[in-house]
């Protein structure tokens, strides 16, 4: 997953944008939905956040979230 997650996303990206195929297995919103922090519903913010942490460690530029939302869409009610 670490190696190919960008390919999984890109594979369906063009189908979604150009052909309107939505609701398939992989989507960026789907990644964020699960991997966002329970504290602030975000995958970015600090090196403890899911996407940012790894990308900082690997020194790979992360530009998805310059356009896409890095926050969970429906703010989950954290029952804590």
């Amino acid at each position: 997953m670490r190696k190919v997650h960008m390919n999984l996303l890109k594979h369906q990206r063009d189908e979604t944008v150009h052909e309107g195929i939505r609701g398939k297995k992989y989507s960026l919103a789907g990644c964020v939905d699960c991997h966002a922090s329970v504290k602030d519903n975000n995958v970015l913010g600090s090196n403890e956040h899911f996407c940012q942490g790894c990308h900082v460690y690997a020194a790979v530029k992360l530009d998805c979230f310059e356009c896409h939302s890095s926050k969970r869409k429906v703010t989950a009610e954290v029952s804590k």
Binding site: A29, V32, E66, C67, H68, S69, K71, K73
Partner: peptide
């Protein structure tokens, strides 16, 4: 300009 807080369904960027 750089944008923040885009909608999940509507990605927009500089």
């Amino acid at each position: 300009e750089n944008l923040t807080d885009q909608k999940t369904d509507v990605p927009r960027g500089k």
